[in-house]
C-alpha cells in the first residue's frame, strides 16, 4: 500500500501491510485533523486499522474490499459523545 499526503488528506492506496502503520501514524500526528481517504484501498491490515481506530481521523471514501467497507468502516465513524 502507499500512504500519501495529498494536501490535507492522507490517501491510502492498494492493499495495506503491517509496515504502513508507522508512516500513517507519523502523517496523522504531524498535521492537526488530517482526514484519511480510504477510497479504493484495502484490504486493510489490522496494524493499519488499529491506527485509525486509535487516532480517529475523519474518514472519507469507501475501501475497495467489501469486508472492510461493510464491517470496518462503520467502526471508524465519528463516535457520539465525548
Amino acid at each position: 500500500m502507499s500512504v500519501r499526503l495529498d494536501g490535507d488528506v492522507i490517501r491510502l492506496e492498494g492493499p495495506a501491510r503491517v509496515e504502513d502503520a508507522e508512516p500513517l501514524i507519523a502523517l496523522l500526528q504531524a498535521g492537526e485533523r488530517r482526514a484519511v481517504d480510504l477510497d479504493g484501498c484495502g484490504p486493510l491490515h489490522a496494524a493499519v486499522f488499529q491506527v485509525l481506530l486509535a487516532l480517529r481521523p475523519p474518514i472519507r471514501g469507501t475501501p475497495a474490499d467489501p469486508f472492510d467497507a461493510r464491517w470496518l468502516l462503520p467502526l471508524l465513524a465519528p463516535q457520539p459523545g465525548p
Binding site: 501514524i25 496523522l28 488499529q50 481506530l53 486509535a54 469486508f67
Partner: peptide
C-alpha cells in the same frame, strides 16, 4: 457469515499514539 463486529482497544491507547507494531485490539 459475519453479522456483527465490534473492535475495541485491549488497553487504553498510549497518550503518544498507538505503538505501530503492538497489536492492541
Amino acid at each position: 457469515g459475519p453479522i456483527a463486529l465490534h473492535i475495541a482497544p485491549r488497553e487504553p491507547w498510549p497518550a503518544d499514539g498507538p505503538a505501530p507494531f503492538t497489536c492492541n485490539i
